[in-house]
Amino acid sequence: MNLFRILGDLSHLASILILIRTIKATDSIDGISFKTQALYVIIFFTRYLDLLTFQHISIYNSLMKLFFIGSSLYIVILLQRSKAIQPIAYREMIMADTFKVQYLLGGSLIMALLFNYKFSFFEILWSFSIWLESVAILPQLFMLSKSGKSKSLTIHYIFALGIYRTLYIPNWIWRYFVEGKVDKLAVISGIVQTLIYSDFFYIYYKKVIKGSNLQLP
């Protein structure tokens, strides 16, 4: 474990807590992409199947995995529950959430079949989750760019997620030099993901630092 990795994991944790707090405190689901959240459930369930094999890496590792599975499921349940409580807001959310996720799912499956460490059930699902995570934020960014309105808490959520991805890169550089370890698939997909966020970061910078309106191209 190095500092970048710990800070990365903590910002990942923070992003999820920010999102849950947003939904709970404001009683609003406005600006949140249901599709992105549903993708995270698929990602964590397919990646953390190794919990079932009881080959524990560490208590920290297992607890974090359980947290990510549980919290992603909880967020989807919270969003689903708004269907009964706030039918209009729910309908608006679904209507605005138009990104075609089947391409992301299909593309990730193809990438997983082509690039994996071993042609086994667990390894293909692991690789699938890695590729899917690299693009899972796209429905959310698409929604944000279409609506043009800046829901500040949604933005803080995306920002914290982006920080998490970005911090994993110095973590990998550190691990390469200090431990001589390199996870090629995680690095390549992680770079793809960070590039997707970099567009958002630029806009975020412009908005927060320069105070202009948030509009993704």
Binding site: R5, D9, H12, R47, D50, T53, Q55, I57, S58, N61, M64, K65, F68, Y117, K118, S120, F122, E123, W126, Y168, N171, D183, A186
Partner: peptide
């Protein structure tokens, strides 16, 4: 083998 499943990152 075991090394394939050594995904220690989250």
């Amino acid at each position: 083998d075991e090394e394939d499943l050594d995904h220690d990152e989250l």
